[in-house]
Design a protein around this nucleic acid. Sequence first.
DNA 1: GACAGTGTGTCACTAAGAGACACCTTGGGT
DNA 2: ACCCAAGGTGTCTCTTAGTGACACACTGTC
Lengths: 218, 218
Amino acid sequence: MTEMPSGGGMNERRRARLRLEISREAARLFWEQGVAATSGDQIAKAVGLSTRTIWRHFRNKESCAEPVVMQGVAGLLGMVRSWPRERSLEDHLAAELAGLGDKTPPVDLADQTLAMKMIRLADTEPALRSAWLMAYDQVERELCVISGDRLGHLGSDLEGRMHAAAATAVIRVLDEHLGAAVLTGADLSELADAEAVSRCFAHAIRVATGGALGDPID
Amino acid sequence: MTEMPSGGGMNERRRARLRLEISREAARLFWEQGVAATSGDQIAKAVGLSTRTIWRHFRNKESCAEPVVMQGVAGLLGMVRSWPRERSLEDHLAAELAGLGDKTPPVDLADQTLAMKMIRLADTEPALRSAWLMAYDQVERELCVISGDRLGHLGSDLEGRMHAAAATAVIRVLDEHLGAAVLTGADLSELADAEAVSRCFAHAIRVATGGALGDPID
DNA sequence: GACAGTGTGTCACTAAGAGACACCTTGGGT
DNA sequence: ACCCAAGGTGTCTCTTAGTGACACACTGTC
């Protein structure tokens, strides 16, 4: 009869951690040998679980890539989540970015490159492309809540959804662009200036939402 | 040694027609009994082909839904494709819509409702959601060419891609909204005024692209 | 009428993913 | 200390999504 709120919450996070763990191995294998050549058994063995358990946590093979993709945008998403209403997007991103160096664990860097490899693979593997899009679909839902909050539901719900969708779309395109740039190793110079990158994101979001997302509220 | 340009072109269109045919049956079955309960054999039998042939035309079961989804947006996409540079988006859509009643074959209406059923199903079936997103990913690529053409590659390629992505995103959200409205049968009144709908699309695209797509060129 | 090319059917096969059941943790109550 | 309920996992089994290989049918060309 007694609920266990801590147990439930713990389980959810435990589950998320496990999914990420599996996803890391899966993404690595996908990158090293391609999606088709990677079997569920192989993923299971790599992460030290039974194959059956893999399918308990992922609805199919491609979707094993989703958590690393989500992890790749988690940084930006976290920043947007903590965006206080009274600040402009540019100010907030700049501030977050300033205090980012110390609190970002090194593991995130590995995840970041893994996520970039996934989008690269998505160019040739339609299955991964759909996983990539599904991950951003998730981002869109989260952004929808945030934009709904900032717009205070003054506009229609539909309007909020469009803003969220447009913002997510430009974020995705920027991610694809940056990912490609990093992996080709072309010019890392444009990435070096983190503030320029954040300004780029902020500007893109502002444009895509017709200015609805960007300005401080009230 | 001799190419057959007519034959090749014919094949491509023949293939597209066949894919659509298969897709219609698949979508119908998906809607009637759910995706999981619909087998490849069943789709094959419904369309009068061997199962093997189904998998020659579609990489997996879910993607069987893509052609009807594409068909669902083909109307709008066609309009945007024929958008002359010297007209505004609003004017062009209104003009196209005026001369639309006569040239739209009735079969399109059935496809339209089928497409709407698919997005409805996508709410509960992640596999269909990814098919839906993949179809719009295709739309985005097409829009990318169009926007690149209209912007004359004056802006960066990246900018064109962001505009295309944002525009596609709002079109998708509007489609989802309209589809939901039609199927719930709530108020068809807001759909009755075709011109209002087209103005809605035009406005959304204009906003999402920061005005980059909408105005006449030069 | 022989020919190339392309699309389809049939058969055999691999692997994705689910169902059923037993086991083993964890954590809480007595 | 003991038991018990809940939920995650392994093992076994089975269905079916999806592929490879090969033969056959169709179509247009020389």
